[in-house]
Simulated scan of single mutants.
Amino acid sequence: MAWGRIQTADGRTLSGMLTDTGLQPMTGFGSTTPAGPVEALDGATLLAPCQPGKFIGLWNNYHAAAEKNGLAIPAAPLWFLKPDTSVVGHGATVTLPPQAGRVIFEGELGVVIGTPCRNASLAEAEAAIFGYTCINDLTSLDILNADPAFAQWSRAKGFDGFGVIGPSIATGLDWRDLTIRTLVNGRERQSYPASDMIFSPAEIVQHLSQDMTLMPGDVIAVGTSLGVRPVKAGDVVAVEIDGIGSAEVTLA
């Protein structure tokens, strides 16, 4: 199943199951109860497939990147928060603020929560995962490292449009089989296996649920690996994962 969210030509926002030509609205996030007729995609705008209450990102969660950068394997997931106003979907135009300076892309796999999750066992954490999506965690390097006394993770990653999610949420996938690819202006810049993760999606959810209650629609970007590079206005950046699709944005 592919779950998506659209804005219709007459301004309505609908979410539900996606097909090649339409969206079947559902009564709530992850519901299987129809809430009206199928809405044609022609003339509609594809939005981020959910609007997370919490958008959580991970740092240093891939063995290859940790080894190359000389980073120790963490004892628990290292995480930060991105504001909900950073969220955009496939096809959006993202304006790079002048104060952001150097900005890099980070193509990532996204985990989407389907049921409330608090102090979960590993099995409960696995069951709480609704599906997977593509993420581009855009980051201002200049702001992140501007103050040696305080790494500004949230500000560096929190500008409007710096959290690209989409194009859909796919269910029924085995994350171990997935490859995350990032293309800039059609040229592949990242290609790495999700199976290289330090903490698996279920382990991440389990750990995070000890710190906070995870709610339906919350999104966890599980971190990136090798190949991140600076981007500039005019670039078209796409994060692609087979079985999910491509989340592409244009930078301005």
Rank of each mutant, 00 (worst) to 15 (best):
V184W: 02
P83Q: 14
L144R: 11
T115N: 14
R155A: 13
C50N: 01
V88A: 06
A65S: 10
A123I: 10
E124A: 10
C50Y: 02
M26G: 11
V222N: 07
G186F: 05
A247L: 03
A238C: 12
L178P: 11
V94L: 11
D211M: 11
D177W: 14
A247D: 01
A44W: 03
A66C: 11
G4K: 03
G110Q: 03
D211H: 14
I73S: 08
V236I: 15
K157V: 01
L251K: 01
T93P: 02
E188F: 02
K157Q: 11
L251F: 02
G114A: 07
D147S: 13
A233V: 09
G217N: 00
A170L: 03
A35P: 14
K232I: 14
L173I: 02
I241L: 13
A156W: 06
I204C: 12
P230L: 11
P97Q: 13
L208H: 01
C50A: 10
A247V: 04
P116T: 08
T93W: 03
T95K: 14
G43I: 07
A64G: 10
I220W: 01
P77T: 04
L208A: 05
G57M: 03
S246H: 07
G234F: 03
R118T: 09
A125I: 01
G30F: 00
W59H: 12
I129H: 05
T115K: 11
V111K: 04
R118G: 04
P74K: 08
T8Q: 11
G57C: 13
P98M: 13
G161A: 04
T179R: 11
L141P: 13
L183Q: 07
F162G: 05
L71V: 15
D10H: 15
G36H: 10
